[in-house]
Amino acid sequence: MTGNRVQTLLDDMRDHQTDHFAIVSRVREIVLRSGPSISEEIKYGGILFSARAPFCGVFSYAGHVTLEFSEGAALPDRHGVLLGQGKLRRHIKLLTVSDIDDRHVADYVALAQQAADA
């Protein structure tokens, strides 16, 4: 059932926000490849990913997509791309597909996934 809800969200995004669909789809691929036990669900209007615990989510807003990290404040920010001032959460703002590589999304996903599995 969760897979159907994720697919429905993606289908709707593909039909109405093609630029965001490309970003969300690529980020989703990266996250799902980050470990063998990654699950996904629709929550808070986006796709939330979990290992032993929820560790990140991808969300589409009117002008951008964000990749949000549940415990992002604890992640090392080697590339200086994490945004946010909250106690725990941090995010990476994505405007184009090329931002995914430019902002080292795969590196941050790997760090967050490893922390969730620890």
Rank of each mutant, 00 (worst) to 15 (best):
Q7S: 13
E41Y: 02
L10V: 03
L111M: 15
V97M: 07
G80F: 08
M13R: 02
V31Y: 02
L75T: 03
G86C: 09
L111F: 14
I38F: 02
G3C: 14
V105P: 06
K87D: 01
G35S: 13
D99N: 01
K87N: 00
V97F: 03
I47D: 05
K93F: 01
I38L: 04
T66S: 00
N4S: 05
R14N: 11
R28N: 07
R26G: 01
V97C: 05
L111D: 13
A112K: 12
E29L: 12
L48F: 13
I42K: 11
A112R: 12
S37D: 15
S37R: 15
G80P: 13
R28M: 10
F21H: 08
L75S: 08
Q113E: 15
L94G: 03
S34K: 13
A62Q: 10
V58K: 06
Y108D: 05
R33G: 08
Q85H: 04
I42G: 11
K93T: 06
M13E: 02
Y44S: 06
D99A: 07
V65R: 04
T8N: 12
A106F: 06
T18K: 08
S25P: 09
L9S: 01
F49P: 15
R28W: 03
R14A: 11
R90K: 10
D15M: 11
F21T: 00
D11S: 11
F49D: 13
L95Y: 03
G86S: 15
D102R: 14
T18L: 01
V27A: 00
A53M: 13
V105Q: 00
E40L: 09
H64V: 05
P36M: 06
L95P: 06
R90E: 05
C56S: 05
G84N: 10
C56K: 08
V24N: 04
A116Q: 10
G35F: 07
V97W: 03
A53F: 12
N4M: 13
C56G: 08
A112D: 13
H16A: 04
M13F: 01
L32H: 08
S34D: 07
H64A: 02
A53Y: 10
H104V: 06
D107V: 10
L67E: 05
R78G: 08
P54K: 07
Y44K: 08
P36V: 07
S25D: 02
T96E: 07
R89M: 01
I47T: 05
Y44L: 08
K93H: 08
T18Y: 00
A53G: 06
T2V: 13
Y108I: 07
R52E: 13
D99F: 05
D102G: 05
H91V: 06
S60M: 02
G35P: 12
A73I: 15
S70A: 11
E71A: 14
G3R: 15
L111G: 11
S70N: 14
V109A: 07
L82M: 03
Y108V: 05
V58W: 04
S60P: 04
A106Q: 06
V58C: 04
L82T: 06
T96F: 00
